[in-house]
Amino acid sequence: MSLALLIEQLLNGLQLGVMLFLMAAGLTLIFGVMGLINLAHGSLYMVGAFACAIVAAATGSFWIGLAASLVAAAAAGAIVEVTVIRRLYDRDHLDQVLATFALILVFSEGTRWVFGSFPLYLDIPPLLQGAVPLPGGGQYQLYRLAIIGVGIAVAIGLYLLISRTRLGMRIRAGESDREMIAALGVDIKTLYTVVFALGAALAGLAGALVGALQSVQVGMGEPVLILAFVVIVIGGIGSIKGALFGAILVGVVDTMGRVLLPQALSLMLPPSQAGLVGGALASMLIYIVMALILAFRPSGLFGAQS
């Protein structure tokens, strides 16, 4: 395998990982602060993608669409938090799983009702079209590099937000003792809504960014949602550092597994079988990695050992 192909696949893995981080960061923040497991996070991703595609088509500008996706996802998140999610914080995980599963049905069918079953398309903005040469020959899509850049910027931004600002201080305080922070006069209800909307906006951003690479359609959030759960479980639920690490791990392992496993197996098996077994194994690989990690560290790599 050539060096250029290897670098290209590594970058693809990194791009997948960064996108997963945008999803996982919101999920893990919501779990860490409110103790809520939110299956409907994938629906917010879908909302972001639809908002971006529709606004971009109407205005002709991807950038306005991107801003719309942030606003739409954050607003959808805030509305859902105030109407439904708020009632679930004191419930057990089973109720949370069910209620947010119900929200997925509502969001998916509602979107299909309004926009139909046909996928929408979103073009890569002209500024980011084109490719960048890679060392060792070959080229790489500029847009995917930009996604990696956005992800890194969000990671740094989140770190600064949580460790350096007053809001971040409250979020950390809410994670460790919600009664105490309420007793100190912080409006915990509003804080929860803000955290939920923040997580939703990140999911919406991820949806809009990926929408330009794939088609925008109902159900697009579900595969990503499950991968994002794998990420936060590997990283340790509630840990943003864990989400970043887990996301990159899952992105790279999944992408490289699909490329390398069939090739590695072809050393031992005839080519047709190697492709078959390698493909099947590669599609299971991250779940195998997750099971192994949880078998040895039951609360994830960066999770609190309680």
Partner: peptide, 30 residues
């Protein structure tokens, strides 16, 4: 045996992961 080492959300997620493993296997095994 593996899943029951965990509890709470982790149990929910690891059982989901095992099911997904088998799902993708069935999908990709012709």
């Amino acid at each position: 045996a593996i899943s029951l080492r965990t509890s709470g959300v982790y149990f929910i997620m690891i059982t989901l992961a095992f099911a997904q493993m088998i799902y993708y296997f069935a999908n990709s095994w012709p």
